[in-house]
Design a binder for these strands. Sequence first.
DNA 1: TTACACCTTATGTCTATATCTTTCAGGATC
DNA 2: GATCCTGAAAGATATAGACATAAGGTGTAA
Lengths: 229, 229
Amino acid sequence: MSVTYREVKADILRQITRGELSPGSAMPNEVDLAASYGCSRATVNRAMRELAEDGIIERRRKAGTRVRRNPIRHVRMNIPIVGQEIEDLGAAYRYALVQCKAEPAPNWLRARMALKHDDRVLHLTCMHYADGAPYQHEDRWINLSALPEAEQTDFTNVGPNEWLVSTVPFTDAQISFHAVAANAAISDYLECTEGDALFQTERMTWLEGRTITFVQLTYRRGHRVTMQY
Amino acid sequence: MSVTYREVKADILRQITRGELSPGSAMPNEVDLAASYGCSRATVNRAMRELAEDGIIERRRKAGTRVRRNPIRHVRMNIPIVGQEIEDLGAAYRYALVQCKAEPAPNWLRARMALKHDDRVLHLTCMHYADGAPYQHEDRWINLSALPEAEQTDFTNVGPNEWLVSTVPFTDAQISFHAVAANAAISDYLECTEGDALFQTERMTWLEGRTITFVQLTYRRGHRVTMQY
DNA sequence: TTACACCTTATGTCTATATCTTTCAGGATC
DNA sequence: GATCCTGAAAGATATAGACATAAGGTGTAA
């Protein structure tokens, strides 16, 4: 095969990192690049499209392509299932259901999940252990109007996350990360001191516009989330 | 134009979310799909390639394409420059340099940055304010062996991040998120109580294998990082 | 039975060409 | 001078056809 889109992409990227193409400068158009690389326009297009997706360059019809002044930095972060996460650490995973109760949605939750006034939710509290030590505390609410079968499900052995993934895969979600001080209950579950700084994740999940579940995941002391780019 | 790759992608995704294509099941090959959609193979290929990138399906030469049992969930997270981040909130941004000192690298830093024994670093402490209120505390070390020009740079008006982005764009990095308790110094800078749970980001940056900089960014109380997928 | 070579198949990529879409720029009109 | 129209430029995408590559499957030989 002749010149691949990977070679073109790598070559352009090399020129940029070496400073031969400086930030803000305009690049030749696709036709000219194809001619200079001795390949077809489609090949150049794919290379350039990927560079644009990577936030390295900026493309606009008619205006042409230029090297970004402030490259968009983004990371791709995997959202693991907690059991998987723990086993990947080489630790033994254990799950325990603490509480499971169907109830009317409290006001703060109704607002956050955009529930109707009489919607009911299933409130679950669970613990996840790594090698016997507390790893993650899970506080979850499932919208029973959207997923009535949750009420008949037994969560003593199967975690709600696992059940949800197999029941309603391919959902949309919003995730947020922040720090919280451990309250009395959490510090008890996670075997830490009240007031300890803990890493917490919140996740809201939708399926075709309907709110399915809201979950707060609080991690043991010292937990880190790490990413590359 | 006839059938677009977006339409094909959307249609396949719809079939999957509706359960018409169940997790684990095999899909028709590209030639057959192209025939059934009445488009060319390249069009189907692009739709399927993107679905695979999105972690929805799994493709293997010869073995064919199947719907993932456990879809890979990932988010694409933008790493903003703090000034940008604050202005996007609609607040006024202010930067202040607290301290800037060239010094031999302490042991813990030498280990983390993989520095040589006699490498020197530039240690910077800065504050970032939103509408006059403390927003982020920055503790940064720059490897002077890799970037000697940093020692002659005046950081009183230009933040080190901004300077680095314009001096060495397009680097590799590792980022981690976690929670920390505010120590005496930090609580003073961020105007919070000692022991408060704060969100902290650490970032290590490389250029062509050389460690450039390590930074700890500590945010004001209640800071959240939010993402969609 | 195991190991290896070989064939087949599905995806991966390139070429060449064409059309579509967005958007900038210049000119006509009010 | 402001507004609207129109043409052209450049990227976005579709097509048909070809070859490349990886890997499952099968048959043969050890």
